[in-house]
């Protein structure tokens, strides 16, 4: 039941933000749509919604954001350097790393974070292994690769989603 209420609230707040008005007709349509969607999509979203009410997770999420944006900006400057350099200093290849995260949500966020951070692009996830295209391979040792690519996000994502 709690899951449905959370889902209803999320959809309804999203609707209010998108319409950005409190006119009665907008609110009524919003309530109707949110009810319908939260009944229809019960099985699809938000498994394990009890995690939504644990404040520690939000704290770690707020800590995660600046780290994430720092790496995103560094990634962009890195790409700009490689693209504008006349000789294009790249040494690409696909490496295989291992993650210790278990839940789907955490793996999804890990893959997205890896894609947006310096020189790496997730190609596929099979079980616990991530295949990552790396634009400038500095080491060929799997242990070290895991250390460089995955560890910096795993610490945060484990505390947020697991």
């Amino acid at each position: 039941m709690a899951t449905r209420i959370f889902q209803f609230l999320i959809i309804f707040i999203l609707w209010l933000l998108l319409t950005w008005s409190l006119a009665p007709q907008e609110v009524i349509v919003g309530v109707a749509l949110a009810l319908l969607l939260s009944i229809m999509l019960y099985d699809v979203f938000l498994q394990g919604s009890e995690k939504l009410v644990q404040p520690a997770r939000y704290f770690w999420f707020l800590l995660y954001l600046p780290v994430f944006f720092y790496y995103v900006v560094r990634a962009n400057l890195d790409v700009a350097y490689r693209v504008l350099h006349p000789e294009m200093p790249i040494r690409p290849g696909i490496v295989k790393v291992r993650t210790s995260l278990k839940s789907d949500m955490a793996k999804t966020f890990l893959a997205n974070s890896i894609t947006l951070t310096p020189g790496t692009l997730t190609v596929d996830i099979i079980g616990d292994h991530l295949y990552i295209h790396w634009i400038n391979i500095v080491t060929e040792d799997p242990q070290e690769e895991t250390e460089v690519i995955v560890k910096r996000f795993e610490v945060f994502l484990r505390r947020i989603f697991e």
């Binding site: 995103v72 790409v79 490689r82 693209v83 696909i94 947006l116 692009l121 295209h133």
Partner: peptide, 9 residues
Amino acid sequence: YNRLQGATK
């Protein structure tokens, strides 16, 4: 793959 890297980021 390199194009995807640069362009997406």
